[in-house]
Amino acid sequence: MKKNLSLTALICLIIVAISSVSCSKNDDPADNDLFVGTYKGHISYTDADGKKSADNGSVTVVKAGGEYYFRFSDGIPDLKGVRFKKDGDHTLVNIDLKEGLHFVRIDASSLTILYTKDNKVWTANAKR
């Protein structure tokens, strides 16, 4: 009985956590410490093995603190640990310029990515 009660409490806690972290389409990633949003549109990835692309792909953006995680659909590898600075009221521009070309622009309604790292290229032109 105690195990069932603990399991039920854990499931309820997970449901509350997910519902409080998920963001509406009007939520702006620049204004939230925690942000989860999905952008849909054209995505692509190129590496030494070739190119993958999708006209109706998606990118799920997860922000925790100051770092962003971009989860691509269609078998495209994810981008992790991307950092931004605020550019204006509601736009974020990537500041991670260690190597390669890094252009990521995100706001409440659109996501644009041109990101190169280790001879790999991610692109996205997507909307929410």
Rank of each mutant, 00 (worst) to 15 (best):
D89M: 11
A124T: 06
N56Q: 11
R105D: 03
K52F: 03
S110V: 12
S19Y: 08
T91G: 02
A54S: 15
I18D: 01
G50I: 13
D87C: 08
G81F: 08
W122A: 04
C23Q: 11
Y39S: 02
L7M: 02
C23F: 05
L97H: 12
T112S: 13
L5N: 01
G57H: 10
K80T: 12
Y69I: 02
L114H: 09
T8I: 07
H90K: 14
D107E: 12
G65M: 09
S24T: 15
H42W: 09
F35W: 10
G66D: 10
G75I: 10
D27R: 13
V121G: 00
L111E: 01
M1H: 02
I15C: 03
R128G: 02
V21N: 04
F35S: 01
Y45S: 00
Y69F: 09
K51P: 00
P77H: 07
R105W: 04
R83T: 11
G66R: 10
L7T: 01
G37K: 15
K40G: 04
L5H: 00
T38R: 14
A126S: 14
V21E: 04
K25F: 11
P29Q: 07
V36C: 09
M1I: 06
V16W: 04
F72M: 10
T38P: 04
T123Q: 12
L114C: 03
A124H: 05
A48E: 13
D89T: 14
Y69P: 00
Y68W: 11
L34I: 14
D87H: 13
V16N: 02
K52C: 00
F84T: 04
F84L: 09
V16G: 00
S44K: 05
V16Q: 02
S109E: 13
A64L: 15
K3Y: 03
R71Y: 14
Y39Q: 02
V59K: 02
P29C: 12
G65V: 13
D118M: 13
Y69Q: 05
D49M: 05
D31F: 14
I18C: 02
K85A: 13
T91Y: 06
F70C: 01
N94M: 11
N4S: 02
K85P: 00
G65F: 10
D31K: 15
I15T: 04
D28L: 06
A64M: 15
S6I: 06
F35R: 04
K52S: 03
Y68A: 04
L79T: 02
I11E: 02
D55K: 11
S44V: 07
S19V: 05
V62F: 12
L5D: 03
F35D: 01
V93E: 10
K51S: 10
K86Y: 03
S6G: 00
K25I: 13
K98Q: 07
H90S: 14
V21M: 12
V104F: 03
K86R: 14
K63Y: 12
G37I: 05
V104K: 01
N4W: 01
G81Y: 10
G75V: 08
G88F: 07
N125Q: 12
D74Q: 07
S109P: 01
K25S: 13
K51R: 11
D118L: 14
V82M: 06
D28K: 06
V16P: 00
P29F: 11
C23G: 05
G65E: 08
D31L: 15
D31A: 14
R71S: 13
D28W: 07
